[in-house]
Write a protein that binds this DNA or RNA. Sequence first.
DNA 1: ACGGTTATTAACTATTAATTTAATATCTAG
DNA 2: CTAGATATTAAATTAATAGTTAATAACCGT
Lengths: 208, 208
Amino acid sequence: MKLIKKRNPEKTAKTILAAATTEFAKFGFGGARIDIIADRAQSNKRLIYHYFGSKEDLFLAVLEYAYSKIRHHEANLNLEKLSPKDAIKKLVNFTFNYYLNNQDFIRLLNSENLLNAKHLKQSNKILKMQMPLLSKLDAILIDGIKAGVFRHDVKAIDLHITIAALGYFYLSNANTLAAVFKKNLKSKNSLKQRSQHIEDVILGYLRP
Amino acid sequence: MKLIKKRNPEKTAKTILAAATTEFAKFGFGGARIDIIADRAQSNKRLIYHYFGSKEDLFLAVLEYAYSKIRHHEANLNLEKLSPKDAIKKLVNFTFNYYLNNQDFIRLLNSENLLNAKHLKQSNKILKMQMPLLSKLDAILIDGIKAGVFRHDVKAIDLHITIAALGYFYLSNANTLAAVFKKNLKSKNSLKQRSQHIEDVILGYLRP
DNA sequence: ACGGTTATTAACTATTAATTTAATATCTAG
DNA sequence: CTAGATATTAAATTAATAGTTAATAACCGT
């Protein structure tokens, strides 16, 4: 008689998703191994197919969950309560720190971009997630422009991408940059400096 | 009697390197197929091992060659002849356009970063390549600060990374951003706007 | 308490792909 | 002109690995 665990479908699926996140982040879509995900989840390969269908569908589930997490955090920043300048400062610092503390997210996105976002393109959940932040940012910029503290030609989507770029690139390319500059970009000191530089760039740019 | 091509070792190696660049850029290190590289180079799998040793060594050769190309272009910009502001403008626009016209380079770097730069870290050629541009940029900044057209707290390495980040991230993540924003970021118009925005950000930031 | 549904397990399969072996042809130095 | 070195080719090898099959156990409504 074989030993079979007590059933717990939801927990099993969640554990698989978490193990898959780690594995995909470490090795990318192609490099990730279904066997390893199953082992790490203390589960069975067959269950991955049972719950998620295929390696590709599993990867999409991982991506969707990763996006939902960052959007959720962003939604809780309460930027509305702050002055335009403080709101931008808070958003900029949050963004850098989120990437820093969730480098799995960066690696998942890099892997997906290498695949031309073929999984995300199929997702209908993703589309709706992004809009809230973008319109919030738009409102902040309008306020700031009216108050005369921001330059007039700034667009929300441009700024959003730029804020992301400044931290994301630094972290996602830290390894090649380190090889090229022979400098450890992830030391506490380097990170603090980068964070300050990013704030300076965004606020410096926004000056009227 | 089998037909065997006339010998041409140098051309063979070069052709393999070019085919490998395309293949690695398209599919990343893990996704690239030695068979396909051999076919595309109208060559033979065995020759890849003959000339390059292994898939990993081939990838490193591809990376080193890709870096040497961009550094070579940068070296020919003749920034010294321009005013500090014009020099920065030229560098910023060159950088974006180079990435735009050489997206293989971006994809190679993304793939290498997903592998924690394990190949580049072994390279001794790479180290020496980067320094010329960085010291040139440093000279430009010092001039600009003296002339009172640049802010006093700007550091060459920070600015260099930031200039790279603004274009690189936009292009490397264009596919996921497009999925999320439902917008084609690679249309002629979007690219022109982005290019202008990047210039605005850098020059806006640099104001004293 | 039992029968259908769903969760779980282990073992199998078919395929793919990096690397090697071994055979043959071309080149080049003396 | 010939022998050793190098370039080229085709085919074999070996190791992984995504996905499947089939068997069994737990759950749950009635």
